[in-house]
Design a binder for these strands. Structure first.
Length: 271
DNA sequence: ACTGGCTCCTGAGGGC
DNA sequence: TGCCCTCAGGAGCCAG
């Protein structure tokens, strides 16, 4: 269920199991992900030590001496550490066995995710090189959003979900952030004031930071459990609450489709 | 340069 | 119980 907080939570959870470990085997059960998983991956990775696991946007980067394994979880992907002898389930498409007799296992029912290998600078990879800035970095603020939005006619919601502007703002947190900033999601991006973009940038940072902090609670049973993140229901102000009362003013919340994605907002609190 | 629309895929849930 | 329809947390790609 990967929005940025889930990806970051996944990264943090994998780190202690994976970094510094040697790959002992690779299993590709179904190569038909978004892009074909290279069959040569077993030859490429076996024997190499994982140097680091980092993240760019929602891409996880496993750095090896000879290149980088890039994994995206798509809409339904999850990565877990399992015992090497644990039987794979239906949608477990990819395993990377590490020398502690554990496996990094990718499950992805919808197969919108990807597993890619590059021996070049991963940030120059076509999928990464045109990405916008990270929402939790110092560069991301209201001034940046306002400047980039000049003349743009798309809705502000589609604008903050555009990965060339800022990465990692998924559909849930776009609605949540706009609610917190009091901005109507349908408003044209070029017609949002600097002051309101400052509030929006703060809201995006706050929502993502809080979700990452909450996601940490699911780390406890990271290697065994399935389990949806605990923060999911409680923290959401508008997402998934169509026709329910606004928590601020009690007006029934609206659900409508913007840019083919479900969007939730309060028509009284957001202008 | 922008914009909107389509696409990949499986599973869950609701209505009948 | 079963069938059919709609919808789902992403994001690349393409035509206009």
């Amino acid at each position: 269920m990967p929005e940025l907080p889930e990806v970051e939570t996944t990264r943090a959870g994998l780190l202690p199991y994976v970094v510094g470990r040697r790959v002992t085997a690779v299993t590709v059960r179904n190569a038909a992900l978004r892009y074909p998983v290279p069959r040569s991956l077993s030859t490429t990775l076996t024997g190499q030590v994982v140097r680091s696991v980092s993240r760019r946007a929602k891409y996880l980067l496993f750095e090896f001496p000879s290149g980088t394994l890039i994994i995206h979880l798509g809409m339904s992907g999850s990565l877990r550490i399992v015992a090497a002898d644990e039987a794979p389930q239906k949608h477990d498409h990819f395993d990377m066995e590490i020398d502690t007799k554990l496996r990094l296992r990718l499950r992805d029912p919808r197969r919108f995710g990807c597993v890619i290998w590059t021996n070049q600078d991963p940030f120059r990879h076509p999928l990464l090189n045109e990405l916008g800035i990270e929402p939790l970095g110092d560069q991301f603020n209201g001034d940046y959003l306002h400047a980039q939005a000049h003349g743009r006619k798309i809705s502000v919601k589609q604008y903050i979900m555009d990965g060339r502007i800022v990465v990692g703002v998924g559909n849930i947190y776009a609605s949540e952030s706009l609610f917190r900033a009091g901005i109507l999601p349908t408003r044209p991006a070029g017609r949002v004031s600097l002051e309101r973009y400052r509030r929006l940038a703060d809201a995006i940072k706050a929502v993502l930071t809080a979700a990452i902090a909450q996601g940490g609670t699911t780390l406890r049973d990271f290697s065994s459990g399935e389990g949806k993140p605990g923060y999911f229901q409680q923290q959401l102000q508008v997402y998934g609450r169509a026709a329910e009362p606004c928590r601020r003013c009690a007006t029934p919340l609206i659900q409508r489709v913007i840019g083919q994605r479900s969007t939730f907002y309060c028509r009284a609190c957001q202008t």
